[in-house]
Design a protein around this nucleic acid. Structure first.
Lengths: 101, 101
DNA sequence: CTGTATCCTCGCCGATACTG
DNA sequence: CAGTATCGGCGAGGATACAG
């Protein structure tokens, strides 16, 4: 999926423990622009990974929340994390050895 | 890692059952150019995921083979496949529903 | 506050030609 | 056979400004 892009996994992590507002996502995702955050969220919404809820208030409040389907993404994500924990040192060693030739 | 790029996972699959030559990779990877295949293989070699063996023959023969470390990549890859098998229909349904609004 | 509208950069990837 | 060299398109992502 779009898991290969730059921001999607970080957005998922930020939403894991519950719904968040647009600006609550922008802060922990240091450096993301509103345009890109919107694109990322829209793509996830389009695929049913999260819901977008607009509250008719002043000032406006929009909350994003993972769907059950969205939560299933943490399964393959956990596998990637496990791989990294187990094998990143070997990868780094290989990279060092390669540089020194 | 570089698993997010266009060709890496396909190269891994092609190498899963044993060593392959440069041209034996080019055929099943329809449409890949030698430049991009070289880049992909070099990146994997650099990270210790495969070995590159040059046989001093005429014509030249170069074989690429996954290392044990390279084989471990199939673990997270399998998790992604499992996710897709289980959840792709839901994703597609969500996408359809989104389009029809 | 929650976006949209423009413009721009940069790097992946492809096409093509050529080399040891 | 197994690449390297060069050029170019294209799209993701960023900077900035503005709107509802």
């Amino acid at each position: 999926m779009r898991i290969g892009d730059k921001w999607t996994t970080k957005v998922l992590v930020c939403l894991r423990s519950g719904p968040r507002r647009f600006s609550e996502l922008k802060v922990p995702l240091r450096g993301i622009t509103p345009k890109v955050l919107t694109e990322t969220l829209r793509a996830l919404e389009r695929d049913g990974m999260l819901t977008r809820t607009v509250h008719a208030e002043i000032p406006p409040r929009v909350e994003y929340e993972l769907t059950p389907l969205g939560h299933t993404l943490f399964e393959p994500l956990a596998a990637q994390c496990a791989w990294t924990r187990a094998n990143l040192p070997d990868l780094l060693d290989a990279r060092d050895a390669y540089e020194r030739r």
